[in-house]
């Protein structure tokens, strides 16, 4: 065991993991996080708290994770390299571990141009792969990037992201391999709508034996309207939504039900895909649908390990 978190234990035991995302508020209300936590408590093994997602300032991921922890819910702290340099990132990792937050997900972060402070300076002192390396160094060698010693243990279960739908497609498996080499223990992918393309990516990585070295959690985002599907297809960087899904949503009498049906069909295929060890549900502003999705996917009750 690297950190002994519930997420790590579930994945290590070979059970199919379920994680979900809880976006913190654009404000100070702890209640917003607590409500999302309560909703997700029974249907997820761990809950991700995003880090100034889409470059919009929100309550910090660290604070959101602590609020979940206090409720007895296991958090996954997301960290982007856009907003903090190596000093701040490492300091926050130590703080997180001290507070009992041991799952950490490393990302580059959406460009600040997309957010509510487009004139901000993007930091990008280190990149997401180097952040993975940093966590591994802190944990396994007990050293900072500078080479100095860290006092105490840094038990972290290291997460990274992968987008099989970005270009160049052929390079995407190599990039995953790089993240694994850097020290990633689990991967949460960009939302899967194009299942055949995702399956090709999974095939390529299993051919390289990467599924034996890292746990892949396939990302899903339920869509609740045709407008949202179109918006995701046309404007969200890194997301690919096939026209067929947009058409289904447009023709649906009850779009929300259709959105759930679509996500359930996707999850059904993901569950059977070799190398996929779990799903990560990103129900942006629709967290209350997550229990139903997990229930109808046959993934309830969550295992106790």
């Amino acid at each position: 065991m690297k950190a002994g978190t519930r997420l790590e234990r579930i994945l290590a035991s070979g059970k199919f993991a379920v994680t979900a995302e809880a976006g913190p508020p654009k404000g100070t209300s702890a209640e917003v996080i607590r409500k999302k936590g309560e909703l997700l408590r029974r249907c997820c093994d761990a809950v991700n708290v995003t880090d100034n997602q889409t470059a919009i300032v929100r309550m910090s991921s660290l604070a959101g994770c602590l609020l979940l922890r206090q409720q007895g819910i296991e958090p996954v702290m997301q960290m982007v390299v856009r907003d903090r340099n190596r000093l701040a990132l490492q300091g926050d990792v130590l703080g997180a571990v001290a507070l009992g937050i041991n799952n950490i997900l490393c990302l580059s972060g959406d460009h600040q141009k997309f957010g509510n402070h487009p004139t901000a300076k993007g930091v990008f002192d280190i990149d997401s792969i180097q952040l993975i390396q940093t966590l591994k160094m802190l944990r396994d060698e007990k050293k900072f990037i500078s080479g100095e010693d860290v006092s105490g243990e840094v038990p972290v279960f290291i997460g990274a992201v992968a987008n099989p739908f970005a270009d160049p497609f052929e390079y995407r498996v190599s990039r995953l391999a790089k993240k694994v080499k850097a020290g990633a223990d689990f991967i949460q992918t960009q939302a899967v709508y194009d299942v055949p393309k995702f399956a090709r990516w999974m095939e390529m990585l299993t051919e390289r034996g990467l599924d034996k070295k890292v746990h892949i959690l396939a990302g899903v985002i339920p869509v609740r309207s045709a407008g949202m599907a179109r918006y995701m297809r046309d404007y969200v960087p890194g997301v690919t939504v096939p026209d067929e899904i947009v058409t289904r949503m447009e023709k649906a009498d009850n779009p929300k039900e259709e959105g759930v049906r679509i996500v359930l069909e996707i999850i059904e295929q993901l569950k059977d895909m070799p190398g996929v060890h779990g799903i990560h549900i990103m129900a942006v502003n629709w967290e209350d649908i997550v229990p139903e999705i997990v229930q109808k996917s046959g993934l309830m009750p969550r295992p106790v390990v």
């Binding site: 856009r82 580059s108 972060g109 959406d110 460009h111 141009k113 997309f114 993007g122 990008f124 990149d127 997401s128 792969i129 180097q130 992201v161 992968a162 987008n163 970005a166 270009d167 160049p168 390079y171 190599s174 990039r175 790089k178 960009q190 960087p237 890194g238």
Partner: peptide, 20 residues
């Protein structure tokens, strides 16, 4: 690279274009 990445393209690279 808009994010000064040192280890390959981020998830926002699409059709040869930057997400920005």
């Amino acid at each position: 690279c808009s994010k000064s990445l040192l280890n390959g393209p981020c998830g926002g690279s699409s059709g040869g274009k930057c997400e920005v």
